[in-house]
């Protein structure tokens, strides 16, 4: 990254240092005709200066939450404050400090990348030399200077998402909200976006990201919240959540689904409390995991499915997620 592309450090006054970047209180949203509320009394505090992940299976209420944060829909009850300002009554103030990156690339396909940046920059009130410098900086940030004058409709999904993200950064926001920014893109673009988000965060930008990629959340986020059925299931620092789940299970993954007999066979091993099978995955619960690993391997070899991996002792967010949300909308 060149020097011009670096986001400028955000000055934070002493008064605001204690203010959460985003604060939700009793946030509920029901849609007419909806059977259950899309959001049901969510309390959430996103601290300043970190990368905060919102996880949840499809239909959990993530997009509804993002739409409320963006001021696109109104909450049925509760309050939303961004940088201490109410999203409903102080939208104009928030606009200057908040950058929003929608899930689907919200860009004009028949305009070039530069024209899109120019248009949305102007819509944010930028102009003149500053606008030009921001366009250049943003193009460099996502490594698209060579593609600046190509029409967006000619871009791959990855390039569209890069452009989509960087439009949200045109006005140098202090708080950046991204809704599933890396869905369905090439690994290179994903790595670039992750890299840039960490750099932006290091430069002082508070980031809220919704995702259903567990690895992404684990790698990127300092703190996460899991929501399901419109409710907040858990909120905490990633290391704390992982520590809570440690040693919970030994996870076996197979190439292809093992026979139904395997889980039953594993449960007969002394020290094994129970074994659960879900697709190609078997989870074995034990309070003495070190002692049961060898007999488990023997049984596996006897039952003859091809083992792909065995994970033990290292809990993943995926496990936390699955234990809280069940197998509904199993994450990738």
């Amino acid at each position: 990254m060149t020097s011009t592309a670096s986001p400028s450090p955000v000055p934070q006054s002493d008064v605001r240092a204690g203010t959460p970047a985003i604060e939700l209180k009793g946030l509920s949203k029901s849609f007419p005709g909806g059977r259950a509320p899309a959001l049901d009394g969510v309390d959430l505090s996103v601290p300043r200066g970190g990368i905060f992940g919102i996880l949840g299976p499809n239909g959990a209420g993530k997009t509804t939450l993002m739409s409320i944060l963006g001021g696109l829909i109104l909450p049925s009850s509760g309050s939303v404050r961004i940088d201490g300002h109410d999203v409903l009554t102080e939208a104009r103030h928030i606009r200057h400090i908040l950058g929003l990156v929608p899930q689907e690339p919200a860009i004009y396909p028949t305009l070039t990348a530069r024209e899109n940046l120019d248009f949305f920059g102007r819509m944010q009130g930028l102009s003149g030399a500053y606008l030009e410098s921001r366009i250049q900086a943003c193009l460099e940030l996502v490594e698209m200077t060579g593609e600046a004058d190509q029409r967006v409709e000619q871009f791959s999904g990855g390039y569209k998402r890069r452009l989509n993200m960087v439009i949200g950064l045109m006005h140098e926001p202090e708080i950046l909200i991204l809704d599933e920014p890396t869905v369905a893109i090439d690994p290179h673009s994903r790595a670039l976006i992750h890299h840039r988000l960490r750099e932006l965060n290091a430069a002082g930008i508070s980031i809220l990201i919704s995702t259903h990629y567990m690895e992404e959340a684990e790698m990127l986020c300092d703190e996460i919240a899991i929501i399901d059925h419109g409710r907040l299931m858990v909120q905490g620092l990633v290391p704390d959540l992982l520590a809570q789940r440690r040693d919970e299970a030994i996870e076996l993954q197979f190439f292809g689904e093992p026979g139904a007999g395997l889980a039953r066979a594993l449960e007969t091993i002394p020290g094994v409390q129970r074994a659960e099978q879900a697709g190609c995955r078997v989870r074995v619960f034990s309070d003495r995991p070190e002692q049961v690993i060898a007999p488990i391997m023997q049984r596996v070899q006897a039952e003859a499915p091809t083992l792909r991996s065995l994970v033990f002792g290292r809990a993943s967010l995926e496990q936390v997620f699955l234990s809280l949300t069940g197998d509904r909308g199993a994450p990738r």
Binding site: G70, G71, L72, L100, E104, Y108
Partner: peptide
């Protein structure tokens, strides 16, 4: 449909 209108709405244009 492309979402650019929503983006403009979030920018309080």
């Amino acid at each position: 449909e492309q979402g650019s209108l929503f983006r403009l709405q979030t920018m309080t244009v």
